[in-house]
Write a protein that binds this DNA or RNA. Structure first.
Lengths: 150, 150
DNA sequence: TATAATTATTTCGAAATCGAGATAACGGTA
DNA sequence: TACCGTTATCTCGATTTCGAAATAATTATA
């Protein structure tokens, strides 16, 4: 890379970070608005959605998928358990492990929320058309995977 | 839009959100690693960078640019003031307003950090080349602006 | 098999963020 | 000028997240 290209790349990298941050903030603000009316925050919704779609999960798997420190998951799972949307189940084969399992009440809530969330999401994301979304998904995935490996 | 296209769009919107979130998390983790070694977190760095590049700012302007609640800025500015990287200056023309101003010590710190940050940033973002970054910036900006207006 | 290293979860205290409300000052208008 | 709505900042209490360390169980190793 030429010296000029290096400078340009640095400029664009800084700018890309700002743009990504701003966009995600705006998107999240809208999602939160929807989900909050059901008494959930984004993290709680994420956990519940995981259990809803992928079935019971070891508590620590949840942390990996939602990207939360183990101590934070304990906290979130506590909250959801208090709200009766999930229960802890001891793992029979490994006594270190606890599974989180969505309750009937949790399932009912997600049956209600999730289709609305889907719809709201595509309204929030309507700034790009289908082709553009596909491009951005591909590029941003590449960007994220690279950054993850550093 | 056909029914099938609507479904596709919902799918892509959900996926786009996940991809954006994951990418930003990975990117931030790397940035934080660099900045943390100077005793700053991302927010503090953001505030300091703003003052470093744009000069003195009313406290509430900082909040708008960094996207923080007013109570949170007070907290962050307190922290930076404790560290002697900025000082509050009463505004002479409007007694409601307080300006935040970077100190010599803060300037020195940024003289040291910022070039490294620039470089680190382009290393973190090296998953995409210049052309791809330009595309993503354009698209994600469009996405964010749309979501902001909702 | 005994011991050591690893893994899963929780506890604890601290940090960062928020929202609601308090306080003070400004700007417009009657 | 006196009052009212708006703006800027701060205080306070609550929520969410984190990291370090505690506990307990499993797996690998000597």
């Amino acid at each position: 890379m030429t010296e000029a290209a290096k400078l340009k790349d640095e400029e664009l990298s800084l700018k890309l970070f700002v743009v990504l941050t701003r966009a995600l903030e705006a998107i999240e603000k809208n999602i939160v608005k929807n989900i909050k009316s059901y008494g959930l925050n984004l993290t709680e919704f994420g956990v519940l959605e995981l259990l809803y779609h992928k079935g019971d999960q070891p508590i620590q798997k949840i942390g990996q998928k939602i990207l939360l420190a183990s101590s934070s998951i304990t906290y979130v799972v506590d909250k959801l358990e208090e709200k009766n949307y999930l229960i802890r189940k001891a793992c029979p084969t490994d006594r270190r492990v606890t599974h989180a399992s969505i309750t009937e009440e949790g399932k009912k809530l997600m049956d209600d929320i999730f289709p609305k969330h889907r719809l709201a999401m595509s309204e929030i994301m309507a700034g790009l058309d289908i082709e553009e979304k596909e491009i951005v998904i591909e590029k941003v995935k590449k960007l994220g995977l690279y950054a993850q490996k550093l």
